[in-house]
Design a protein around this nucleic acid. Sequence first.
DNA 1: CACGAGACCTGTTCGC
DNA 2: TGCGAACAGGTCTCGT
Length: 297
Amino acid sequence: MPELPEVETIARNLRHGHPRETSPAEHSYRVREPRAEYVTAPPSAIPVVGKTITGAQVFWPRTLAEPDENSFYHQIIGQQIEEVGRRAKYLILHLSEQKLIIHLRMSGDIIITPLTEPLAPHDRLTLTLDDQYRLAFNDTRKFGRVWLMDDPTPLFAGLGPEPFSDEFTPEWLHAALQKKNRQLKPLLLDQTFLAGLGNIYTDESLHRAGLHPLTPSALVSETQAARLRDTIREVLSDGIRHNGSSIDWVYRGGGFQNYFRVYGRGDEPCLTCGTPITRMVVGQRGTHFCPQCQPLG
DNA sequence: CACGAGACCTGTTCGC
DNA sequence: TGCGAACAGGTCTCGT
């Protein structure tokens, strides 16, 4: 589920609590009704910085990638949450002694509730906080993973650059695309090439850049690469500004789904030219593009 | 190196 | 109504 903007939103929520999306209805299409209980604020929007972990519980063993369960309990209890960060799609809780790394994969979410609330159906790992709140890693599909480590550097070693870093320049992107001989869509999804893009934001970036998802990377011109770099940053910024995307049953307060131009809009008219959006499968992922605005070759 | 298929999982939606 | 297939924001591994 979550891509860079959603993970960034959760990190900010856990750090500060964050103002909610008060989405104006103007560009709204495909609007889904948010779950009534979350209309004011999603449960991830409660700050946890400064709180101390007084208990922990693992309900689905595979969720905990490292260390083993007993060591996890022994090590994490007593540590304070000092800061919350993000690298690629990883959420990072900086604890007083170690780092707690969380990858939400397809269906993960972080939910903060008072201890008096019952556990949610898909809570896989929970932390008890000293102010009588509970931080739950909730993950319907069980793909998510959690690591408690002294130094997470090895986990991040293979990742490509952050899209908002100084390293991600038009020149870097053009050169990097030249070095590969791959289709753009799967290449942009490859976290070792560039960190943070997922299926939604890749499709949206390529549409705004006017590039076909199957374009061979080595054929992208300098001008096109520069444009693509800008649209990637633009789409991610828009996503963050709207607190990420909320689709299907996972609602965490974001509203960027109301601004999708191609994702999930197969057969609907392109908002630029009116041509029906095409949906095809590329690398086993649903891929959406406008055949008019994003010609191949 | 590039690419496709299969795994890992549960839940929703759609067609018959 | 029931039931199977397709599909879902991600990533890893294996075979060609």
